[in-house]
C-alpha cells in the first residue's frame, strides 16, 4: 500500500496468482512435463514405429505398412503369450480382490491393533514389483526350495513348480495375490463409509452375518469394487517382473507374459517395430476389456445417488 503506482500492477499479479486456473497449472506443471516427455512422445513414436521395421541396432527405418500386424496372426508365441496373459488376469484379479476384501472386512473391527495389522498387510505391496521379491519367490518354489522342503518333511512328493507347464504360472499368480495391500486399503476406506444404520436395521429384521454381507456390504461397496477391478485388471495385463526374473517365460512358454514377449522382441530379438505393433494390439485388447467392465457395471454397480 506504500506505492500507489504499483497497486494496479500488484493487484493484477495477485489476481493472476490467485486465479484457480493458474494455481492448478503451476502445481500440475511437473506432471504435465513428465507426461509429455516420458509418456506422450514415446507413445506417439511407438505408434509410428509399429508401422516400420525399426530395430534398436540400426539407424534406418523403413515403413512396412501393416506387415507387423499381419505377422502377429501367424506368430505362435504371440498367440500363446496372449492366452497366458488372459489366464493370468482372469485368475489373479478375482483372487486378489476377494482376498483384499476379506482382509479389509476382518480389519474393520474396532481394535487398537487394526492400524498395525493394516500396515503389516500393506508391506508386500510396498515392495511389490521389486526384483528382490521375485528372487525370493524363485527360491521358495525352486526344486529344493522351502515349499518342497516342507512337502518332503511331511512325507509328500515334491512338486516341480517351474518345470511343469501346467503349474509354472501359479506361483506367479500367487505372488500377485500376495500383493493385495493397495486394494485392501481402498476397500477398508469404503467399508467405513457404509452407514451403520443399515446394519442395525437389518439386525432388527433378523438378518444373519452372511445376509448382511450380501445385501448391504456388497451393494454399498460396488462402486469401489468397480474401481479396484479396473485398476487391477490393467496392472495385471502389464505384469512383467515376475515372469522375467523367475521363469524367463519357460517352460515351453507357459509363463510367457505378453509384456515379457514385447520386451524380448524389442531388446533381445531386435524387432522394435514388431514390439510396438504388439503393444498397440495389447492396448486395444485392454481397452475392450475395460469397456466391457464399464458397460456391465450398470447392471451390478449400485449407486445411492441414482436411486
Amino acid at each position: 500500500m506504500k506505492d500507489t503506482a504499483t497497486i494496479g500492477f500488484g493487484t493484477k499479479v495477485r489476481k493472476f496468482i490467485y486465479n484457480d486456473n493458474t494455481v492448478g497449472h503451476v502445481f500440475a506443471a511437473p506432471f504435465i512435463f513428465g507426461f509429455i516427455c516420458f509418456s506422450l512422445i514415446p507413445i506417439l513414436t511407438s505408434f509410428y514405429y509399429a508401422f516400420t521395421d525399426f530395430s534398436m541396432g540400426s539407424k534406418e527405418v523403413t515403413p512396412v505398412g501393416l506387415k507387423n500386424f499381419a505377422a502377429l496372426l501367424t506368430d505362435e508365441t504371440f498367440m500363446k503369450s496372449l492366452g497366458v496373459t488372459l489366464k493370468y488376469v482372469f485368475i489373479s484379479v478375482p483372487m486378489k480382490l476377494a482376498f483384499a476384501l476379506f482382509v479389509a472386512f476382518l480389519l474393520t473391527r474396532k481394535s487398537k491393533l487394526v492400524t498395525l495389522y493394516r500396515s503389516l498387510y500393506y508391506v508386500p505391496s510396498l515392495v511389490g514389483g521389486s526384483v528382490a521379491v521375485a528372487l525370493v519367490w524363485k527360491q521358495l518354489f525352486a526344486r529344493r526350495g522351502l515349499f518342497n522342503m516342507v512337502m518332503k518333511d511331511m512325507g509328500l512328493d515334491t512338486i516341480n513348480w517351474f518345470g511343469d507347464q501346467g503349474l509354472a504360472l501359479f506361483p506367479l499368480i500367487l505372488m500377485s495375490v500376495w500383493q493385495f495391500g493397495s486394494s485392501m486399503i481402498i476397500f477398508a476406506a469404503g467399508l467405513k463409509e457404509i452407514p451403520t444404520t443399515y446394519y442395525e436395521a437389518a439386525e432388527i429384521d433378523g438378518a444373519n452375518g452372511f445376509q448382511k454381507f450380501i445385501k448391504i456390504t456388497l451393494p454399498c461397496l460396488s462402486p469401489i469394487i468397480l474401481y479396484n477391478l479396473v485398476m487391477q485388471t490393467i496392472s495385471a495385463f502389464m505384469a512383467f517382473t515376475q515372469a522375467f526374473i523367475i521363469t524367463k517365460g519357460g517352460p515351453n512358454n507357459a509363463t510367457m507374459m505378453y509384456a515379457l514377449y514385447v520386451y524380448k522382441q524389442a531388446f533381445d530379438y531386435n524387432n522394435m517395430g514388431y514390439a510396438c505393433a504388439m503393444s498397440w494390439f495389447m492396448l486395444m485388447v485392454m481397452s475392450i476389456i475395460t469397456l466391457v467392465i464399464f458397460k456391465s457395471s450398470k447392471m451390478w454397480v449400485f449407486s445411492e445417488a441414482g436411486d
Partner: peptide, 8 residues
Amino acid sequence: PDAGAEME
C-alpha cells in the same frame, strides 16, 4: 535338467 531346473 528340465526347463525349471535350468532356470536356476
